[in-house]
Simulated scan of single mutants.
Amino acid sequence: MKMEILSKGNKGQTIIILTGMGCSFDEWYNITKVLSQTNRVVMFHRPGLGESEIRNGNETRNTQAVVNELLELLTVLEITEPIILVGHSYGGLCAQHFVKTHPQKVAGIVLVDSTSVDLQELDQLHLPVLDEDETDEDWLEKCNSYSSMEEEQLKRILNPTIPEELKSIPEEIQQRLLDFQIKPSLYKAMHSEISNWKQDAKIIKSLETTINVPLIVLGRDKEFNIKLGKQDGLPEGELIIFEEKWQELINRQVNLSNDSKIVFVRGASHSIHINRPGIIIQIISEIVNKHT
């Protein structure tokens, strides 16, 4: 099975970054460009994303599958030393699964506004307007529909765009980002990941392991996100309830390690790596320096 891998730099510490759900590793271009000057940075597209193939049958996409793929990647690339593991959003859930099951392979960990092992608590909030088309069921329905469409059809419906902060990266990388969003296989993979992530979270939570490696937890800016939601016409009351719960879940992630700290990044949405790449570079470098 073909897997698309990005590898930059050939010296120093190995850093592996796991992307969020439905996210391309090209979103990290500005970060990997800097980090790879002194480190080896490796990223990969999970099956169904980018050029990575997904089986036509019912391939289960869950965090255990990502753990297995990461182990295989380390073997293929002959990486034997402990890695710095970075996970954004759903990639953070996968990173938590990996570090709990293979702690000896990890030298440090950075969670970037990571999905929580307690994510089901978000479903228990009373948010009638926010939940109108944002529940797992709504997303599963969308993904199911999109996965059966042609690329041209998806292009018309989704009208993909490039975030303002990424408009300075090379044009061919921008084009890859646009193409990435209109591949039907992406939505097939997302459908499976969403179908399994609540069960995955329970499994990861049940692994009662406390890690002894440096951990930095990054969270988004609560006030900034409430402001963004209000600009989209969403009710402030519901946004406050959601963002306070999200922050509480992020706060709990420091308990994953005996050596941890938390930073809430001002002016950052869920996509901290796009809004504030400099902070991500600084935090990952801090973890690298702790290890070396």
Rank of each mutant, 00 (worst) to 15 (best):
N225K: 08
E165Y: 15
V66M: 05
L127T: 12
T209Y: 12
R220F: 02
S285Y: 00
K230T: 10
I79M: 13
D136L: 09
E69L: 10
E164C: 14
Y90T: 11
I216G: 13
S116K: 04
P184F: 01
Q153D: 07
L207F: 09
T161G: 11
D113I: 03
H97Y: 12
E164H: 15
E78A: 12
E134P: 07
L49V: 14
S7E: 15
L122R: 05
G87S: 04
L122C: 06
D123W: 03
D123I: 02
V42E: 00
E27A: 11
V117F: 14
T135G: 11
I281E: 08
L154Q: 07
G12R: 01
E72M: 06
G9S: 06
N212M: 01
F44S: 04
N62R: 03
L119W: 06
I83D: 00
R156C: 04
T14F: 07
E244I: 02
Y146R: 09
Q64V: 06
F25W: 06
G91W: 00
K2P: 00
T14C: 08
W28Y: 12
S192E: 02
D200R: 14
K183Y: 11
R61H: 14
N56H: 08
E193S: 14
S36T: 06
P235Y: 07
L215N: 06
S36A: 15
I203N: 13
S114F: 07
G22C: 04
K33P: 10
S147N: 06
G87Q: 03
E4M: 11
I17S: 15
N251T: 13
L93Y: 10
E193I: 08
G92V: 02
Q231L: 14
G91P: 02
R266S: 15
L166Q: 10
L35I: 01
A201M: 05
V254M: 07
S36C: 00
E53S: 13
N58M: 13
K105H: 12
S148M: 15
D221K: 05
Q120W: 14
Q174I: 15
G92C: 00
V263Y: 11
